[in-house]
Design a protein around this nucleic acid. Structure first.
Lengths: 72, 72
DNA sequence: TAAAAAAGTGCTTTTTAACGCACTTTATAA
DNA sequence: TTATAAAGTGCGTTAAAAAGCACTTTTTTA
């Protein structure tokens, strides 16, 4: 998953919950300017920022091992 | 998954591959000083930095919807 | 055990994410 | 249509992530 995919998931999730960028900014504690940046495909969020958005949207940031099923 | 859990996964994965911090730093392009910081439980990496480490370790950063099975 | 390797830390500089403001563009509804 | 809401952008500031250096502590191994 590269960053643009992650941004797309955040955006899609927000839209599926019928929440505006402004509302999500308030709920998450991430500045509106910053959120706009991500949803228009730019930027490089910190883990904390991604987690704030995730918390507000019911999303979770995880790290998984690739190729499960081929290896262990 | 909070950040310390994520750091632990990175560290455990590196160790399971028998790679030193120094080698991982070289392979990933993340500075040794920065990697040390994470593995000792501190800091707030950017998505890009996390992905660099993940790429070198065969880990993937993902965002998933919580409560799968209860909701959709 | 000593020596060597690996891991961890304090301090500093450089780079850039996050933010705020003002504004433009696009989408929505009256 | 045309107000109105929502989304997107340029620019400057501030806060902090990333990096470099020198050093200490811990772990490994010869």
């Amino acid at each position: 998953m590269h960053s643009k995919e992650i941004f797309n998931i955040v955006k899609a999730r927000r839209e599926s919950l019928n929440v505006t960028q402004e509302t999500l900014a308030q709920l998450s504690g991430v500045a509106l300017r910053t959120l706009k940046q991500f949803e228009s495909g730019k930027g490089n969020p910190t883990l904390q920022t991604l987690q704030k958005l995730g918390d507000a949207l019911g999303l979770e940031v995880t790290v998984i091992i690739k190729n499960r099923g081929i290896n262990s």
